[in-house]
């Protein structure tokens, strides 16, 4: 692991609360969560459905704003940013990997990887950077293929290339192996761990697969909107 140059955590969540309003009823999804993640860490978030792990993942991913509490991402207070500012934060600092890959079906792997750069100010040498990202996930010979011409594992690799192309501070993977067989799933986890080792990118994996969480340095267990346990997995 590359040693950290900064000492402050890349993710600093303090007393984060989220309440959903469904009609008249208030549904608390997160009831005061505190998490600090250091640069370069690999953290797994686990918990049964309804535990609030999806909500926490959306908060960390800047896809949604908390009802209360503070969230500092990479030194930036993001808990009260406007929608378009959040979009910029997502573009620059977060790489998303989804369970269902979420690739654009009509375009090639290369163009899928280029997509985040279209929404960025830095869009020079797009093709070169996208090619480099695809090389990093071992798909340089599949660049011109469309998603339906690729296997599930390969599609998830394209998604990972897309996640790293803007060199984000963190990669946020939501059940990255959920749609894959165990062999392909293992390869994806190995790839993510490899990127973490080589680039020092912080890795947050939301999962309920014990094999996946076993690969993480730290596992956070969530239940009923609260952290119920935290520990080293190995």
């Amino acid at each position: 692991m590359i040693p950290n140059t900064k000492t402050d955590p890349v993710i600093d969540v303090r007393d984060l609360k989220k309440v959903y309003h469904i009609g008249e009823i208030e549904v608390p999804a997160l009831r005061g969560v505190n998490i600090q993640v250091q640069r370069g860490e690999v953290v797994a978030i686990m918990g049964p459905s309804g535990s609030g792990k999806s909500t926490l993942m959306n908060m960390i991913g800047c896809l949604d704003s908390p009802s209360d509490g503070v969230y500092i991402l990479d030194g930036l207070q993001v808990s009260d940013l406007r929608d378009d500012e959040l979009a910029e934060v997502r573009n620059k600092k977060i790489g998303f990997v989804f369970q269902k890959y979420n690739l654009l079906p009509r375009v090639s792997a290369l163009e899928n990887v280029e997509l985040p750069m279209h929404y960025s100010d830095e869009n020079s040498h797009m093709q070169q950077r996208a090619t480099d990202a695809l090389k990093a996930v071992g798909l340089e010979d599949r660049m011109r293929h469309k998603p339906n011409e690729l296997s599930g594992g390969q599609q998830q690799r394209v998604a990972i290339a897309r996640a790293i192309v803007n060199e984000p501070a963190i990669i946020l993977a939501d059940e990255p192996t959920g749609n894959l067989d165990s062999q392909a799933g293992k390869e994806i986890i190995d790839l993510l761990l490899g990127l973490n080792r080589e680039r020092g990118t912080t890795l947050i994996i939301v999962t309920h697969d014990p094999d996946v969480s076993a690969a993480a340095q730290r596992v956070i267990h969530l239940r009923d909107g609260l952290i119920v346990g935290e520990g080293e997995s190995r």
Binding site: A87, R90, K92, N102, N166
Partner: peptide, 16 residues
């Protein structure tokens, strides 16, 4: 809808 969601996750603003 899910494509729009993805684009937003990747940094698309409303205007985009």
């Amino acid at each position: 809808t899910s494509e729009i969601g993805l684009r937003k996750a990747l940094g698309a603003r409303k205007l985009d």
